[in-house]
């Protein structure tokens, strides 16, 4: 009795297996015929293409499909992980800044920001009544003890292993706790539809550049993390005409000037020029270092919108 039932079930299984394999065969042969037909239709036009490993191949033009955008998941994953072994730092030499504002426009271009939105902003500073005024570019400080990531209720803003503090606009719910927590006012909020929203609506979101920007979320300086992946300096650093910015890897003890391309020892640069960080008393441990505005390359011209300053 027992054997019979087991036999039955085996027979049933074999039957259904046969049917499904047969069906699959028919379907696949159909599709093969279809493909062959398509291939024989217009064999005329062949296109030369370079494969990823550098081989030149010929492909039938009929078989060409548009490339799939880099999938969001992959971008999100590598954006969270960061670049292993690196520890990025920036040094800003205040004695060289003359408020040319090239850093700001390069940044706004890169991150699709309007002219009134700043990931980096050049401020006119005067510390006290009788001290000399100076210009100070202020990006996100990418703190080693960031107050902003502590308060995020949805794990949208985070610090990566290479020291960069990023924000994931896909996760951000727009509560703006991080804006309140940041002592450097480094973050902005997209109150309205971002610039060129219509133009970029089909672009895959890149967490390392915060583009396309999303309405109702927070955005901030990212040290151009997408450019760093290609061993390029951040947009602001390479746009500066006056040699204000140095950028590099603290693990390598070297920073490179974006204007001159000169690479110097980070520790020596800080030591010899009395480098400091902003509001170190808060214990935020910033990764952006400033060199004091001593021996200036330009005379201070206080008028922010002075034509002479803007070229």
């Amino acid at each position: 009795m027992k054997e019979e039932t087991s036999n039955n079930s085996r027979r049933k299984f074999l039957k259904s297996f046969g049917i499904s394999v047969g069906a699959a065969g028919v379907v696949s042969s159909f599709s093969l015929i279809g493909a062959a037909k398509a291939a024989t239709k217009k064999p005329a036009e062949m296109v030369n293409l370079l494969t990823q490993d550098g081989q030149l191949v010929q492909v039938d033009k009929n078989q060409l499909r548009p490339t799939v955008n880099e999938p969001l998941d992959e971008l999100q994953k590598r954006g969270r992980e960061g670049i292993p072994g690196k520890s990025f730092v920036m040094v800003i030499d205040l004695s060289k800044c003359r408020n040319a504002r090239k850093c700001m426009s390069a940044c706004q271009n890169h991150h699709q920001l309007r002219a009134d939105q700043h990931h980096i902003n050049v401020l006119q500073m005067q510390d006290a009544e009788h001290t000399a005024p100076y210009f100070m570019p202020k990006p996100c400080q990418h703190c080693d003890n960031p107050p902003c990531t502590k308060v995020c209720p949805v794990d949208a803003t985070f610090k990566r292993q290479d020291g960069i503090v990023l924000i994931d606009n896909e996760r951000c719910i727009g509560c703006r706790f991080c804006i309140a927590a940041c002592p450097y006012s480094a973050r902005i909020f997209q109150w309205t539809e971002p610039k060129d929203a219509e133009k970029y609506k089909d672009l895959t979101y890149n967490i390392e550049a915060n583009v396309p920007q999303k309405k109702g979320t927070v955005s901030k300086c990212l040290f151009s993390a997408d450019r760093l992946r290609e061993d390029k300096l951040p947009s602001c650093v390479s746009a500066c005409p006056n040699g204000v910015y140095y950028f590099g890897d603290r693990n390598e003890d070297a920073v490179t000037n974006g204007t001159t391309g000169e690479t110097v020892r980070f520790s020596k640069l800080i030591e010899e020029n009395a480098g400091y960080t902003l509001m170190e008393e808060l214990g935020t441990k910033p990764r952006v270092y400033y060199l004091p505005p001593k021996n200036r390359a330009f005379e201070f011209n206080g008028d922010l919108l002075n034509e002479e300053n803007l070229h």
């Binding site: 390029k232 890897d249 070297a254 690479t263």
Partner: peptide, 10 residues
């Protein structure tokens, strides 16, 4: 010259 991330250190 020593290779660093963004340039060569002399």
């Amino acid at each position: 010259l020593v290779k660093r991330s963004f340039g060569y250190l002399d």
